[in-house]
Amino acid sequence: MAGARDTVRGWGFVAPALLWTLAFFVVPFVVMAAMSLATLEGRELIWGVSLENYRRLFGQAYLFRAILVSVEITLTVTVVSVVLAYPLAWIIAFRVPERWQRLALLLAILPFWTSYVVRSYAWLLVLAREGIINKALIGLGLISEPLTLASTRFATVTGFVHFFVMLLTLTIYANLVQLSPNYRRAAIDLGANGWQAFRHVILPLTLPGIVTGAFLTFVLCIGDYITPQILGGNNELTGPQIIMVQLGRGANFPLAAAMSIVLMALVTLAYLAAARWLRLDRI
C-alpha cells in the first residue's frame, strides 16, 4: 500500500518535468520531423512522407555547402575558444588572488551584458576598412592598405569566439577551482615536471569543464544565424541562415524543418562524441 502511494507520489513529482518535456520538446520535435517530410506545391503545404527536402539538402550544392560551412565554423570557433579560455580560466583560478577572483570573473563575462546584435555590429565597426584595427595598423606603418577583415569568415569566427570564450571560461574555471592542489603536488613529488603534471593530471581532471563548455559552444554556435549574417557579410551561408531564408522569404517550412533536423543530428553526434566527458556535476 505504502509502495503504491510512493509510486503515485513519485509520478506526481516527476509529472511536471515530463509534461514540460513533452509539451516543449517531444511534441515540437515530432511536428518538426513530420513537417520535414511534407512538401510544398506552389504555395500549398502537402503533408505526407517524402524525402524530397533531404534530397535537396544533400543534392543541391549550395544547400549542402551551408551544412559544411556551419560545421567548419562551429569546429573552428569551439577549438579557438577552448584554446583561449583555458589559460584565462587558469589565470583567474590560480594566479589572481582569491579576493580579486570575483571581480576578474565579472570582467571576463562583462561583454555578456551587451546585446548580442549590438555586440556584432560593434565588431563590424572595429573590423571595418576604416575601423580601429586597420587605422592602428596603418598608423603604425605595418600596412599601407586596409585589410579585408569585416564581411569574412574571420569576422564571423572573431564575433563568435568573443562570446564563447566567456562561456568556456566560466565552465573551465568552475572545474579548476574544485581541484585540490594536492593532485599537482603529488604529481611533482612523484617526479613529474610542471608540463607533465598538467598534461597527465590537471588536464584530464578538467576535461569535464572543457567538454561541457565546448559542447555548449557547439550547440549555440551551430544554431546561430545573427553573427554570420552581420559579420560574415552573407558571403557564405550557414544552415541557420538557410532556415531563416526559407521561413522568411519562401514560407518553405518543410525545407526549413529538414535543415533543422540535420542540425539537430549534428548536435546529437557532437553529444555522442562528448558524452564520455560530459559530467555536469563536475562543474
Binding site: Y121, L124, L125, E130, G131, T148, S151
Partner: peptide, 18 residues
C-alpha cells in the same frame, strides 16, 4: 562585391566606408 546585407548592414557598410 564585399558583402550582401539587409538594410542596416548595407547602411552601416556605406556609412563606415566599408
Amino acid at each position: 562585391a564585399r558583402s550582401v546585407g539587409e538594410v542596416v548592414a548595407s547602411q552601416t557598410a556605406l556609412a563606415t566606408g566599408e
